[in-house]
């Protein structure tokens, strides 16, 4: 059992478990935040798995999730804009904490990889992930206030 696999297991079990709990219960504003954070927590988990299995090509999964996960949250933010305007989510503390976790995981992986093209790819994934989730969080808390009907 290598340390990377342990880290991936712990982060996936804890992170996705918590996200699942958040998305299954409570008011709508809590559920959308949990959906957004599920991406932010699963993507570092996938990157850690790629390192654990020693297969650099698995990083593509993290790349696709970092790109499309926030897009999925934007879909919810836009089409639930009316419902969310009445009761906007406020979860900046949580968002930045999870972003910090993602940054820590990406940094650790970069140190393990060493300077190479693989490291550049990891950095791109990390940047996309963190910016995507912060923007998606912004969109949830009133980013689509000026959207009506379409």
């Amino acid at each position: 059992m290598n340390g990377w696999l342990l880290a991936a297991t712990v982060s996936l079990a804890g992170g996705l478990g918590a996200a699942l709990w958040g998305v299954a219960t409570g008011p709508l504003r809590r559920r959308v935040v949990a959906q957004n954070l599920s991406t932010a927590l699963a993507c570092p988990g996938l990157l850690l798995l790629s390192q654990a299995y020693g297969r650099p090509s698995y990083v593509d999964l993290g790349l696709v999730l970092a790109l499309l996960g926030p897009v999925g949250t934007l879909v919810f933010a836009r089409l639930l804009a009316d419902e969310l305007a009445e009761d906007p989510p406020r979860a900046w503390g949580l968002t930045w904490t999870v972003a910090g976790l993602g940054a820590a995981a990406v940094t650790a992986l970069c140190v393990a990889t060493g300077p190479s093209r693989a490291m550049v790819k990891l950095l791109v994934v990390g940047a996309l992930l963190i910016s995507g989730n912060v923007i998606a969080s912004r969109a949830l808390s009133g980013g689509f206030r000026g959207v009506r009907g379409g």
């Binding site: 996200a19 998305v23 709508l28 559920r31 959308v32 949990a34 699963a42 999730l65 919810f76």
Partner: peptide, 22 residues
């Protein structure tokens, strides 16, 4: 609507399952 949110999370979890099954 809430089901769609859960479904999005389910999709991510399934992707993790497929990855750990290589």
């Amino acid at each position: 609507m809430r089901q769609a949110l859960v479904l999005a999370v389910l999709g991510v979890v399934l992707a993790v399952l497929f990855t750990v099954l290589q």
